[in-house]
């Protein structure tokens, strides 16, 4: 996977943040996009890895 395009990520931030009732201050936008690019690239690294049926349900005791 190539790294996510920062312009696409910037559009994602602008569209999704308001849906979550998050207002990204203008002085934070560039840093938020840069960090989200890094997190999405980390996600790509995991998407490329073949996982089996690893169980991750949290143990809940009623």
């Amino acid at each position: 996977m190539s790294a996510p395009d920062p312009r696409d990520v910037a559009r994602y931030v602008d569209e999704v943040a308001p849906l979550l009732d998050l207002l990204v201050p203008p002085e934070c936008r560039e840093g938020v996009v840069r960090n989200l690019v890094g997190l999405l690239a980390a996600g790509d690294l995991l998407r490329d890895f073949p996982l089996g049926g690893e169980e991750t349900a949290p143990v809940f005791e009623p």
């Binding site: 994602y12 931030v13 999704v16 943040a17 979550l20 998050l22 990204v24 934070c28 840093g31 938020v32 996009v33 840069r34 960090n35 989200l36 890094g38 997190l39 999405l40 996600g43 995991l46 998407r47 890895f49 996982l51 089996g52 690893e54 169980e55 991750t56």
Partner: peptide, 25 residues
């Protein structure tokens, strides 16, 4: 910290679950 916290708030849940599955592996 604030830019990193805000970026974390915008992460899709599927990535989080994938990361937890990798953790088991």
């Amino acid at each position: 910290t604030r830019d990193r916290f805000l970026a974390g708030a915008l992460l899709p849940a599927a990535l989080y679950v994938r990361a937890q599955r990798f953790r088991s592996w």
